[in-house]
Design a protein around this nucleic acid. Structure first.
Lengths: 223, 223
DNA sequence: GCAGAAAGTGGACACCATGTCCGGATGTCG
DNA sequence: CGACATCCGGACATGGTGTCCACTTTCTGC
């Protein structure tokens, strides 16, 4: 009951929407502009409110026309997503194949705590991008959310938690970028403290030995 | 240690931004238009995507000029907030002075579970307004969030939870309207199931006898 | 009642971002 | 080196924003 294994067929992030497919080779100027655009977007998102970055602004910063942006990305959010892709993929790999407790092998509660810590790290480093990428409902449609959701749901199921399907979104909610921004910058808590709080939450919710102790606490049946 | 009491000096919602203050009386045409605007906004938010309701749309629906809207409300979100005010105030009153377990008197875990259930009820009934009112960071700046935050923090402190200050925002995160919308409409879960999941979470996190792991069971308070 | 003052109203305006189109420039391949 | 496909970016139409100001409605004091 203890070894949480993430199912193999988890949804993994696809290629970038640009899709440098196998078909025709990408032209040199196109590649140059793609790099320019991404670099410029990184700067633009970093300075100022990521939530109201405009295509115009990125185009100006990159020194290209707006139509060039629209050729590949429909909106600023998708550019932020493209920038995040690599980082999220790396983290997904650590979850799937890395060492415990983030990777397979540890108890579900410990794995969830480690996952929380890793996500806090990601948010700390790339908050501006996550804020830019996940405007409201887009968060749930994103490929990354599907992966995290499947992972945490598997941990919940492995720990024998009641109704993992409905609890999983509640446990992912504290990782919404707006929540982290509030805790981190409005309230001023250091990342370690936020991660520690979430870790405590994880261990309390996913008590794997729920019936293993002497005290016969009736499982909290929901009303 | 069990009786959770909410501090008396909780921040309570102020008057509506219109501020029908003591100063000059509100003119008849102004009152008439205010009612028109609110009724129209209710309709507009209810039909379609609350996140992209525009001042133009509300003005047209109300049959008034845009400048009339701008006189009182700076943006659509503040109109939605005004519409929510009454409902949230009523719920705040039940939390402060109503019967247990939502009001004072029950164990912290039970009170949090009841609070979750009440919020799910509010979200179910007025989701379109909450979605319209809380665009990203505005959620945390709103007066209502301050109230819920103080309440839940008091419950955490009363249960002896470690670092309530940092945990409280994580426990409020599942109530973000976007999260509820996803669970309710993308995934199709009924409100009762969502409330039950949150109730289980509440009882697990707020185990009042946190240090005594041997025999302490949460009191079997019936709902 | 009535006139004047104050408050309220809404059409008009300038600004900005969006998303698309097309003439021209730029690579790539034969 | 020339032809062709691809790509670029200025220009345009659209729609929302927020403000200004001339006009109308209501309230108050005489």
């Amino acid at each position: 009951m203890a070894t949480a294994r993430t199912p193999a067929e988890l949804p993994v992030l696809g290629d970038t929407p640009a899709g440098r497919g196998p078909l025709p080779r990408e032209r040199a100027d196109a590649a140059r502009n793609r790099a320019r655009v991404l670099a410029a977007a990184e700067r633009v998102f970093a300075r100022g409110d990521a939530r109201q970055v405009t295509m115009d602004e990125i185009a100006r910063e990159a020194g290209v026309g707006r139509a060039t942006l629209y050729r590949r990305y429909p909106d600023p959010a998708s550019i932020a997503t493209a920038l995040l892709d690599e980082h999220e993929r790396r983290l997904q790999d650590r979850v799937l194949r890395g060492p415990a407790p983030l990777g397979p092998g540890a108890a579900p509660g410990e794995r969830l705590a480690a996952f929380y810590a890793a996500m806090v790290e990601l948010l700390e480093r790339h908050l501006h991008l996550v804020l830019g990428a996940e405007t409201g409902r887009a968060r749930f449609a994103a490929g990354a959310y599907g992966f995290w959701r499947a992972h945490v749901r598997a941990l919940l199921a492995d720990a024998g938690t009641a109704d993992p399907e409905v609890l999983v979104d509640s446990l992912l909610a504290p990782l919404a970028p707006e929540v982290y921004r509030h805790q981190r910058h409005d309230l001023g808590f250091p990342p370690e403290r936020i991660a520690a709080g979430l870790g405590g939450l994880a261990r309390r919710v996913l008590v794997s030995g729920v019936s293993g102790f002497s005290g016969e606490c009736p499982p909290p049946t929901s009303a």
